[in-house]
Computed example of a mutant assay.
Amino acid sequence: MLSDSQTPQPVNAQPYSINCNGRLVQLDTPKIMGILNLTPDSFSDGGRFNTEKSALEQAGKLLSEGAEIIDIGPQSTRPNAEFLSSQEEIKRIGNIISQIKKEFPEALVSLDTFYAETVKFGFSEGIDMINDISGGQYDEKMFDTAAETKLPYILMHVNPSYETMHDKIRFEDITLEVNRYFSEKINTLLEKGVNDIILDPGFGFGKTVEDQMKMIDEVEYLGFRKSPLLIGISRKSFIYKPLGKSPLDINEETQKLHMKVLEQGAKILRVHDVAEARETLMQFLQKK
């Protein structure tokens, strides 16, 4: 894991911090979030980490390579993925959260779900933040549950229903649309008492290749610089399909885009390939 003693400190960084279960986490140095899919059907690593033993091993690997946050996903949200209920998600998670917290107490654990009940279960097991791809739109109880837990909440831009999640929409101005969405949702979350909000523009969800490249170019304008930005572009089709490559063959291109978003103020990179992202982060910090 990266620590303040191991990495150069960026100059003039936005002084964001989030309260994770009473642990104040500073985001002046950007963090790497390692993806841990417990699913049999994720598009690039399905079935590899869906046992407690393999999930623990992978969590340890992600942390050793430089991740500070482990994002646990019990349900794939790729196009045409199997739809699971909250009960099925909870069953799939089992003891993995508590085992990771026991084995790696220094790690922050994020839970990737759009169900309030799954969040409640994860909270009882020790999660440190909520990663809801739905922006509270797929479960009306999500925002209230986030407020009850007082955990940081990752708010992602996405289409308004599960069924339309991946429908490609051509926006007149994608940056304006995403900021309008963020503004509305942030106000609702603040009214309910959710104070630690992280913003995710939603790469890979219902946006054209052109709009996603425009978002990359305009990251610095997303979110009004009032909340930390999470960028999740790892193995996304808007990168590999135009190149005629597979999700596993775009590391060089992905790291160039990671550098670009870091230079524009991104605070969390959500990635599959942690070692490579860490190298990019180190290069970024050394340039500051």
Rank of each mutant, 00 (worst) to 15 (best):
I233M: 06
G204N: 01
V194P: 02
I18A: 01
P30W: 09
D273Y: 12
K245M: 05
V219L: 04
E220T: 13
K91P: 03
P201W: 05
L63T: 06
K236C: 08
K185T: 12
T145N: 05
Q9Y: 15
S64K: 07
P10V: 11
V194Q: 09
P40H: 13
K185R: 14
P105D: 01
E184H: 09
V209C: 02
R270D: 07
K91E: 11
G22F: 14
L229Q: 06
L189Q: 09
E191T: 15
A107C: 14
Q26T: 11
M156C: 10
L199F: 06
D45M: 05
L248Q: 11
L2V: 15
E88V: 06
E276R: 10
P160H: 10
V178G: 06
L229V: 02
D249G: 09
I100P: 01
G47K: 00
G204M: 01
F203N: 02
P30S: 10
M213C: 01
T254H: 09
T208L: 13
S227G: 01
A275S: 14
E148P: 06
A67W: 11
S5N: 14
V25D: 00
A81H: 00
G135I: 02
N80W: 08
L36F: 12
K245Y: 13
K31Q: 11
D217I: 05
F121M: 01
I18E: 05
K101H: 07
E106V: 11
G34W: 01
D112C: 04
V209G: 02
